[in-house]
Computed example of a mutant assay.
Amino acid sequence: MIVRIMGEGQVKLDDSHFPTLNALDDELMAEVESGDGEGFRRTLGALLEAVRTMGTPLPDDALEPSELILPSPEASIDEVRAMLTEDGLIPD
């Protein structure tokens, strides 16, 4: 799956990594819903770092369609709340 982190670029992720990412996504969704700003910031950073670490970066000039778009590390809790679906940022 091709994942875009807004403002950073794209990475290719193997589907085997999604259970780990979904656990972080569930935690992030709970923090957004409860308004836990400190937890939100920590978990968003952990989620994005996991994507960067587990994924293979695509070249900047790659024109692959992104199947999943994640917020930038600087995104506010309100910006992420607007991006959430019932499954969070990452579909189950």
Rank of each mutant, 00 (worst) to 15 (best):
I2R: 00
V3I: 02
R4Y: 05
R4Q: 05
I5F: 01
I5H: 10
M6H: 08
M6Q: 11
M6R: 12
E8L: 00
G9T: 06
G9W: 00
G9F: 02
Q10A: 05
Q10M: 06
K12D: 13
L13H: 02
S16R: 12
P19C: 00
P19D: 08
P19A: 00
P19Q: 03
T20P: 04
L21S: 11
N22T: 03
A23Q: 05
E27G: 08
L28V: 10
M29V: 14
E31Q: 15
E31D: 15
V32T: 03
S34M: 12
S34I: 09
G35M: 10
D36C: 09
G37E: 06
E38W: 10
E38G: 12
G39V: 09
F40L: 15
R41Q: 03
R42I: 10
T43W: 02
L44T: 10
L44D: 11
G45Q: 01
A46T: 08
L47K: 14
L47Q: 13
L48N: 11
L48P: 13
L48A: 08
E49H: 14
E49R: 08
A50K: 13
V51K: 07
G55V: 13
T56N: 12
T56I: 10
T56A: 14
T56M: 10
P57M: 13
L58M: 15
D60R: 15
A62F: 15
A62T: 15
A62I: 05
A62R: 04
L63F: 12
P65K: 01
S66D: 08
S66I: 05
S66H: 02
S66M: 02
E67S: 04
E67I: 04
L68G: 09
I69E: 08
P73V: 01
A75R: 02
A75N: 10
A75I: 03
S76F: 03
I77L: 14
I77Y: 12
D78A: 09
D78P: 08
D78G: 06
D78E: 14
E79P: 07
E79S: 05
E79D: 10
D87H: 13
D87C: 03
G88F: 02
G88N: 03
D92Q: 14
D92V: 06
